[in-house]
Simulated scan of single mutants.
Amino acid sequence: MTTAADISVRWTTAVDDAPVAVATAPAGGLVAIAGAAGTAWILETATGTPVGTVSLPGGLLALEFSPEGAHLAFTGPTGHGLWRRCDGRTLTFATGAWSNAVRWTSPERVAVASGRRALVLDPDGTEQWATDPAPSTVTDLAWLRGGRRLVSSAYGGVRCHERHTDKPVTEYKYLGSHLAIALNPNGRWICTGNQDASIHIWHTRDGDDLTMHGYPDKIARLAFDDTGRWLASDGAPDITVWDFSGKGPAGTKPRTLRAHETVTALAWRPGGGAVLASAGAEGTLALWRADSGRPGALVRPAHARELPEPVTALAWAGPDLLVFADYEGQVEAWQVPAALAR
């Protein structure tokens, strides 16, 4: 097992709010911490030095940097906004629509959820196109085919839109409320985490689907690693990791990662290696070699640490730096060794 001595603290700081999201821009050397009340703090990744703040009236829910780190898009219960690094310009759009998702696909194009629609904007906030209304509030977004296709989740399944098409060009249906989307990097699989405590999976080429039932709680966090082989999900109290190699997970069992009472955050380390970071409501932060053991096996963390407060958000800033924030606003960056014990 990796010991406490193997992990060093690069820096610590604090923000004056309860963090709800962390975003990193490895190419731009920035990290942003979103506070529930509506302020986001932008810091230098290497040192934690403040760069600036942005605010969105009504609160914040999500934020993401553009691929090159020149822009930050942020969303909340009453609208969305954009920040530009070169001069600190901030644009906010009070749409009155709940917005819980933001996804960049290039430096010139970002999608935000806006009530029952998804809006595609340029970095100046100009609307390039918008989807027609979904059956319910859009809960998550993703891009397929190198940014040529936008995928959105809402009640009843996921809908796919080509550029400048308001009507969906493809729909993958499953009755229920879909809370999160995960796409593997080659676009072969679309997965959703659902209110009915299930994961639903579609094969994009032929629409074949299957459902993983039996979770104790709803699935609100769902993520593929960079290789597209491993899918991690919450569902309280354990994390499950499904193997999508070969023909996919049909007829297989997942690995079970046990360290938390309720999962509050999870994120794969970039660059492969099947290393997953997770946090729980009881105050534990854990690092896993998620490919350890056999399918159906219970996996123990390669490293786990009890913290004074529950971690509410975390993100990797490259493969060696993990940034996380706790309920009281403490923010910390860990230097993580390249190798973790199996």
Rank of each mutant, 00 (worst) to 15 (best):
L285E: 08
C160M: 09
W242I: 01
L307P: 03
D320C: 09
L257R: 02
T165R: 15
I239K: 04
D196A: 13
K173I: 00
W202P: 01
A73M: 03
L63Q: 12
P77A: 12
G318T: 01
G272A: 00
T252H: 11
A223Y: 04
T105D: 08
M212C: 07
Q335S: 15
T24R: 09
W104D: 04
R255T: 12
D291K: 02
A302F: 00
V158M: 10
R255Q: 11
R159M: 09
E332P: 02
G69Y: 11
P77I: 02
G28M: 14
G125H: 02
A338P: 08
G296Q: 05
W98I: 07
T227E: 13
G283S: 07
A36D: 08
P249L: 00
W334P: 06
I190Q: 03
L287S: 09
T13F: 06
A220P: 00
A70R: 14
W129N: 10
I181C: 10
L144H: 06
T105G: 02
R258N: 10
G193K: 00
T262E: 15
P308N: 11
G52R: 06
I42W: 07
G29F: 08
A62W: 04
E332A: 11
R109K: 05
L56D: 04
G214R: 10
P337H: 08
T90Q: 15
I239V: 15
I181P: 03
A267Q: 07
P57A: 13
N186I: 14
P123Y: 00
V112K: 02
E332V: 14
T92L: 00
S114A: 14
P168I: 02
T312S: 11
K173P: 00
V15L: 04
V275I: 13
P26L: 10
T45S: 15
R289T: 13
D124E: 06
V311I: 15
L298M: 14
T227W: 06
G88F: 12
G228E: 06
